[in-house]
Amino acid sequence: MEKKDFKPYLIEYLKDELDEETKKEIQSKLKVDLELQEELNEMQVVFGELNKVSIQKPDMQLKENFQKMMEENTAQAPGLFSSSISNIQNWINNFQVTISFKQMAYAAVLLLVGFFIGYNQNTGTIISGEKNQELSMEIEELRKNMMLTLLEQPSASERIKAVNISYDLEDADPKVIEALFFTLNNDKNSNVRLAALEALTRYSFNKKIRNGLTESLRHQNKPLIQIALIDVLTEMHDKSLKKEFNDLLQQGELDSDVKEKINESLEILM
């Protein structure tokens, strides 16, 4: 055997995946090479721990969604993939699977708005400032509606996408803020809640929003969200938060990581 460094083969040795020859060579090398022995022991520990991590099963929802996708695919595109025309049909059909009618309508309106802007620019027509403003407002309104629609989607990644749309909005619209707070306080997925918190942080200069975030802290029960909220609130350096944090500390079943975070924050706010 030409290879001199046996270390990279130790994992296969542990998994018993080596050919007999290499296995025997490693076994004889192990008897004399302390460093290799040590490396094997080290690998064994990590390998043993990794083996204990079990495989998780997805919810039934995944299978149901898959079946739905297959049904839609069969119903909408018989003879799929058989010709270039059917490939185009398939593309359109698949597009419909992921994009709802409402979303398509918004996209169409956005396209029209874009067309008119482009048309007016190309023909040299000067749109008055008032008209421009009107168009911007319409686009802003469409974005808001798109965001609110996506927030109601069952998929967590779609809801995160909705939260991200809020970054494109210029003003702190009450409807948007309300929807973000609703998401922060009620969404069943922690990552969606965190995304909402991150989006709301941009408006933390607004006292109402700061109050809303403080209020939200009282209702959150997941340590992950509590810690993220405490971080955000602490950055505001509002001394009145000390009372909130102290009240929270009095709660009997508070997670130890959250307690530690509050104590750190209280030191900062001193």
Binding site: P58, N65, S155, A156, S157
Partner: peptide, 11 residues
Amino acid sequence: GDKEISQDLTQ
């Protein structure tokens, strides 16, 4: 580390 997103991505 998120079940729901992992399911979305699997789909």
